[in-house]
Amino acid sequence: MSDTYEMTLSVLLPSGVGAGELAELQWQLGQADHRCGAAAEPLLADCGALGEAGDGWAVTAHREIRADEFPALDTLLVGLARLSGVQGPLVVGQLRRPGDGAAEPLVVRRGAVEWPSGAAAQER
């Protein structure tokens, strides 16, 4: 049985994000009825928001995840980092084991999610 973790996401996106990317984020957040050609379920349904923030957008979410969900979340988190326009490593959120006091950062670097060492070891 996989361990569970609390994942919190917070990513600022520039105003130039395209309508298609915003629609995809809305679907992932459960804010859209359907996604063309997709059979998968939204990864952040009913646990997050996409809203205007200054001159751009803010994506926030908080949900419990299992270590076996890391591969599915990789694509979403890497995509958020790409859309942010930030060059170099980007902290997209944090991961914490329920009951633990300290959370560890979720970092996207060079097109890959760096899952915290203890969490990544659980998936292996």
Rank of each mutant, 00 (worst) to 15 (best):
T60Y: 07
D55R: 07
R63S: 11
E64V: 06
G54E: 14
A53L: 11
G56V: 14
R66P: 02
G54V: 08
G79A: 14
D68N: 08
L73S: 04
D46N: 15
A61V: 11
E52A: 09
H62M: 09
A39T: 08
A49K: 02
C47A: 06
H62Y: 11
G54M: 08
L43V: 04
A40K: 00
L50G: 10
L44G: 00
A61G: 06
A72F: 09
A39G: 01
E69R: 11
W57H: 01
L73W: 04
W57R: 06
A67M: 07
D55N: 15
A40Y: 07
D55E: 15
E41K: 08
C47I: 03
R63K: 15
C47K: 13
L44T: 08
G51D: 15
R63M: 06
A49W: 04
L73Y: 09
G48T: 13
L77A: 03
A72D: 14
T75G: 13
L43I: 05
L50S: 03
V59N: 03
D55Q: 08
L44Q: 12
E64R: 00
D74A: 00
L43Q: 05
D74P: 07
G56N: 11
D74Q: 04
G54P: 13
A45M: 04
F70G: 00
G51W: 05
G54L: 00
G48W: 04
G79N: 14
P42S: 05
A39P: 00
L76N: 04
A39L: 03
F70M: 07
L50M: 11
G54A: 01
L73R: 07
R63C: 13
P42N: 13
G48A: 07
A39W: 02
L76H: 02
D74E: 14
E64P: 07
E41C: 01
A49V: 07
A39D: 03
G56I: 13
A58W: 12
G51F: 06
A40S: 12
A61F: 10
A39H: 03
T75E: 12
G48K: 10
D74Y: 02
A72Y: 11
A45C: 05
T75Y: 04
D55P: 01
E41Q: 13
E41R: 14
A72E: 12
D46I: 02
A49N: 11
R63Y: 06
G56E: 11
F70W: 10
A40M: 05
P42I: 03
L73M: 10
A45D: 11
P71K: 00
T60F: 11
E41H: 10
L50I: 10
W57P: 00
E41T: 15
H62S: 10
V59E: 09
A58G: 15
G56W: 02
D68L: 02
D74H: 01
I65W: 05
A53G: 08
C47V: 01
W57A: 03
R63W: 14
G54W: 12
R63D: 08
E52D: 07
P42M: 08
F70Y: 01
G56L: 07
G48P: 08
G56Y: 10
A58L: 15
D74N: 10
D74L: 00
A40Q: 03
R63F: 07
C47L: 12
R66G: 12
